[in-house]
Amino acid sequence: MSTIKSRLRREKIAKILMQLAGIGITGSLFLIIGIILFKGLPYLTWDMISQTPQGGFYIGKEGGILNAILGSFYLAGLSTILACIIGLPIAIYLNVYIAQSSSLARVSKLLFDILFGIPSIVYGAIAFSIMIALGIRASLLGGVITITLLTIPIVVRTLDELLKTIPLDLKNTTTSLGATPWQTAQILLKYIKPGIFTALLLAFGRAIGDVAGVLLTTGFSDNLPLYLDEPAATLPLAIFFQLSSPIPEVQGRAYASALILTFIILIIVICTHILASRQKKHRL
């Protein structure tokens, strides 16, 4: 047995190592945001947010990325709504209608984990080949369908975790009063209301940031997205394309676009955080 001194020294070293690891991990977040802010801010102008690409935008002339910002919001908004329409009933079914120990519940859990883990590029590739088979060209609609598939598992998983936090008593009380499962579900939904918005925001955040899924299915367009059956620009893709340009001015705009996306994501995260703390209070 080593002396108490060396044991305490080891304790100290381990603690310092752990602190360094923690600082490294949280530091990486500030490094990412800091660098994007530093590089993007000089190029961020009002024109960037308020205009569509004009002639010669991609060689560094005037214009903005309003088309991509709007496209991303449409795409993420529509897919989030669709994912909620499909995901909410599934989460309710899994928690109210069937027993947690049933094999269907277990299999569902695994399969949703897998759906959650399927990379968006695979969703994109599948959707793309289906679209080719049906003769549909890359369009906002194609993107919405792909991203909806991508976000359903997020909605289901978040709501599932939320519904699990509800005390069993509440469920049992309503059932013993003679409520049908659907009536029970309605009461539970009231209970987790702020949490539903959290799930929606999480899905929205993932949807607005995805590139691989929209790369093949949504295409790109310099026009404002007006119709579902036309290609639409998306913000992450705009960043990706502008970044691959050799012209410094265009690259700078990519950084500014990245900064805009960072702002959007930060706003979403802050809203999620506020809603989550409200859910805690809501819980009584």
């Binding site: 923690g22 977040l29 960043i239």
Partner: peptide
């Protein structure tokens, strides 16, 4: 303080990680 920051890290889209990768 730290756990919410980790959540922010989780919310950052891949393309921003890519931009950071190229820049840093």
């Amino acid at each position: 303080t730290v756990l919410p920051l980790i959540n922010v890290l989780a919310a950052i889209p891949p393309v921003l990680y890519g931009v950071w990768g190229i820049l840093f």
